[in-house]
């Protein structure tokens, strides 16, 4: 049995598909390349709906494929993390490129409250810890 299926999350007819992967009860979305604002907002909406639909226990947002994150993209990422958290599902941002991290800090975008990890594997471990903490708090 496979715990790995691809959910094509693009709205039909746009010819574009943002793949949201499902690994067990965790969702993984990889942001890549040159994203325009509309695409970023679409990913945000689709990810939120996907978390609600699948009752995912956690989400990894992989940004290692983004060479530039300006304040708009950073704010949308922070907002989607806050939204899925409201749904009761923690999200971890993984793979922020070092040059992007340096730039965001200097630019002054508040990102310090986000849970982050170096890569997907460490992100998974962090999600497990966040879930365990959440269960204890209940």
């Amino acid at each position: 049995m496979s715990h790995f299926d691809r959910v094509p999350a693009g709205s039909p007819g746009t010819g574009e598909i943002i793949p949201i992967m499902r690994i067990g009860d965790t969702l993984l979305v990889a942001l890549q390349g040159e994203l325009d604002d509309t695409t970023v907002v679409r990913i945000e909406e689709q990810l939120t709906m996907e978390v609600a639909r699948t009752h995912a226990k956690g989400t990894l947002i992989d940004v290692s494929g983004l060479g530039v994150v300006d304040s708009f993209i950073a704010r949308v990422i922070a907002r989607v993390v806050a939204m899925v958290r409201l749904l009761g599902s923690p999200a971890v941002v993984v793979g922020i490129q070092p040059a992007v991290a340096v730039t965001l800090v200097e630019l002054g975008v508040p990102m310090g409250h986000l849970d982050t990890a170096l890569n997907a594997e460490q992100g998974m471990a962090l999600l497990r810890r966040l879930r365990a903490d959440g269960n204890r708090a209940r």
């Binding site: 994203l35 530039v68 040059a99």
Partner: peptide, 30 residues
């Protein structure tokens, strides 16, 4: 998007390092 791509290409051509490229493009995007 085009503005960011142009800034990247010109920053690479000028020999800027990766961090400086990223800073220039991000400022330009703002």
């Amino acid at each position: 998007v085009h503005a960011r791509q142009t800034l990247r290409a010109e920053a690479v051509r000028a020999g800027l390092g990766l961090v400086d490229q990223t800073k220039l493009i991000t400022a330009g995007s703002e």
